[in-house]
Computed example of a mutant assay.
Amino acid sequence: MMEELILSIVIVNYNSEKHLRDCLLSIEKFPPSKGDYEIIVSDNGSCDNSLELLVREFPYVKVISNDENLGFSKAANKAIRISKGKYILLLNTDTELTQGTFDLMIDLLENDPRIGVAGPMLLNRDGSVQPSVRPLPTRTHLMLGRRSLLTNLAYFRRKSARLRLIAEDIVEADLVSGGAMFIRRDAINEIGLLDERFFLYMEDVDLCRRMKEAGWKVVYNPHAKIIHHWEGTSSKQRRRAFLKHHISIYKYFQKYEPGFFRNLPLAIALVVHYLCWWVYSLFESSSPPKRIENGSWRK
């Protein structure tokens, strides 16, 4: 008799052959021990050797080969629609599993049927903690984002750190990172799939917000850990991704606080910030993101 398909691991890939291979090898090394699982890679028209890699080294992986870059949400939704697991894991290509993570997260979901979304602790390669749990964004919070130029100033850096204090135990949160997000199928069936207006970024924020508005819990579990490599993209790719991020921020606020004139100052601020960041990035040497200070969780 076949074991229950407990987990569907959904990975969206775009020209990330090396990261994809390391990610899949880590799943092989530390697989779930309770129930069977499947892996679905939705490839966004990669022009590297990603598809050849999957055929050659990971023939058991289900592959969706998109003809073009559909963006994260649309590509992930295509995989979610054909997935069969009780739970879904949205997993970035630039992640690596650690021992026991799958079982800790599945146990968490099994023990509380009202959890709709759950996220593990994300770590940098050197073991320092990434800010993977935070409150829902406000217009003020935009000034304190990870890549905001204002966080180069001590005052705003301290303010930003307070938004990213690290929980030391399992806790309910406003949102968890989409870099490694466990989702209950019953919950996403109820509220709907990822919003495809978000090409890249903010789809995780939107999903967590809709989960909470529908009465589902969003939970952070720091006992389960996944390594997340933020570095590894070229300067050109970072600038393109950052532009998409700014566009998605505008679309997020336009969705929940609609109005052209209401959001016109936000649009202007986002354009100015992106242009300033673009100039700044030309002179900034490539480096991993800044660490954050450990601290106690605050509501």
Rank of each mutant, 00 (worst) to 15 (best):
P222N: 10
S248L: 09
G127L: 09
H245D: 13
A180T: 12
F253R: 14
L264P: 04
A161C: 06
N189M: 06
L89R: 12
H245P: 01
M105Q: 09
I166G: 08
Y280P: 00
M2H: 03
P289S: 10
V133K: 12
H246L: 13
S46Q: 12
V272K: 15
R164E: 14
C276H: 08
M1L: 09
L122T: 05
P131N: 11
A241M: 14
Y201L: 09
S50D: 14
Q130N: 10
A154Q: 13
L175K: 09
R81P: 05
Q130M: 05
K290R: 14
P258A: 01
S8N: 07
F58R: 10
R184V: 06
Y252H: 08
F253I: 06
F72V: 08
P59T: 11
T138G: 02
L5Q: 05
V129K: 13
M211Q: 02
I249A: 05
L282C: 01
D206T: 03
G119Q: 11
F30N: 03
M143I: 00
S287N: 13
S177W: 10
I115Y: 02
P258C: 02
N77Q: 04
I106F: 08
G71K: 07
T93N: 14
A267G: 11
A76Q: 09
H19I: 07
E231S: 14
R291F: 12
V10Q: 11
P120F: 00
A267W: 13
D204A: 05
G145Y: 10
Y220V: 09
D94V: 03
R146F: 09
A187E: 04
H229L: 03
N66R: 06
K217A: 11
K225N: 04
I249R: 07
E168K: 14
L5A: 00
F283A: 03
L53K: 04
K236T: 13
V171R: 15
F253Y: 03
T101Y: 06
T140W: 15
L165M: 12
G295Q: 07
D22L: 14
V279K: 15
D204Q: 07
E28Q: 14
D103R: 12
G232L: 01
G232E: 03
I226A: 07
A269C: 07
N189G: 11
L270V: 01
A173E: 03
L25N: 13
V41K: 11
H19Q: 15
L149G: 04
Y155A: 10
V63E: 06
E96C: 06
K299N: 14
K159W: 11
S46A: 13
G295R: 13
P137N: 01
L123S: 08
R114I: 02
S42N: 14
K244P: 01
V63P: 08
Y14T: 08
L123M: 05
E231M: 14
D43A: 10
D36Y: 01
F253H: 00
S73V: 01
R139M: 09
K62M: 11
G259T: 00
Y155Q: 08
K84H: 11
H245N: 15
S26N: 11
M202I: 09
I166N: 15
V171N: 11
K251W: 10
T98K: 15
F199W: 07
Y252L: 10
N294V: 06
I166Q: 15
Q99N: 15
V176P: 05
T93W: 08
K217P: 06
L270K: 00
G179I: 04
I39D: 03
S46N: 12
Q254H: 03
C208P: 05
E3I: 00
S177I: 02
Y37K: 05
G45F: 05
R238C: 12
S281K: 05
